[in-house]
Write a protein that binds this DNA or RNA. Structure first.
Lengths: 96, 96
DNA sequence: CGGCATCCACACGGATACTG
DNA sequence: CAGTATCCGTGTGGATGCCG
């Protein structure tokens, strides 16, 4: 089944809100159903969009941390508005 | 090139905000790059989600009008929050 | 006018293997 | 660990044609 690509960006965002810095492997573990190909692709796109920062620590073993830019963090209120809307749904039929 | 399916729902929403009722052909003309298969599919999904209403006028020639439910209209503030966020983008590189 | 049915190309994304 | 490279099956969505 199709995974609707775009949804992952939201999942990643929610994991990164609050200024958390997560390593690549942290995100892999936090989002078990994502392939690492998909994960890196989404991260790269969000980085190109100026939403995500990529911090490379030059070590052995390698360590890369992902976080949100100020611009990315500022999405939080807007997404909360959507959450609020979603929770207000009248006759609660979730749509599977 | 892929059209990323989900984006159309937003486009349709924006055309329907303000309580406007639009005919199928109105929407087709308002969104030139959408195929009618895609258009009807998105409308049906939004109808199933309780966001869109479908008003059939039994006439010759046929006439069907689409509008938003109260629930759909209530999305407006949340999307405005997103718009506001998008307009506040720092160094204005639009991402084509 | 407002659809539904059919066909099919090809872009998407999963799995796997390899590298710095 | 944090990716890149390659292969390949699948489902999406555009195009076309027909109907009520």
């Amino acid at each position: 089944m199709r995974m609707l690509e775009g949804r992952w960006k939201l999942v990643i965002l929610f994991h990164l809100f609050g200024g958390r810095l997560l390593r690549f492997s942290d995100l892999e573990r936090a989002i078990p159903d994502i392939s690492q190909k998909m994960l890196i692709q989404q991260l790269r796109q969000m980085e190109a969009d100026g939403i995500v920062t990529r911090l490379v620590h030059h070590q052995v073993p390698p360590k890369v941390e992902y976080g949100l830019t100020a611009w990315g963090q500022s999405l939080c209120p807007a997404l909360d508005a959507l959450l609020t809307w979603a929770e207000a749904k009248p006759e609660g039929t979730h749509t599977p």
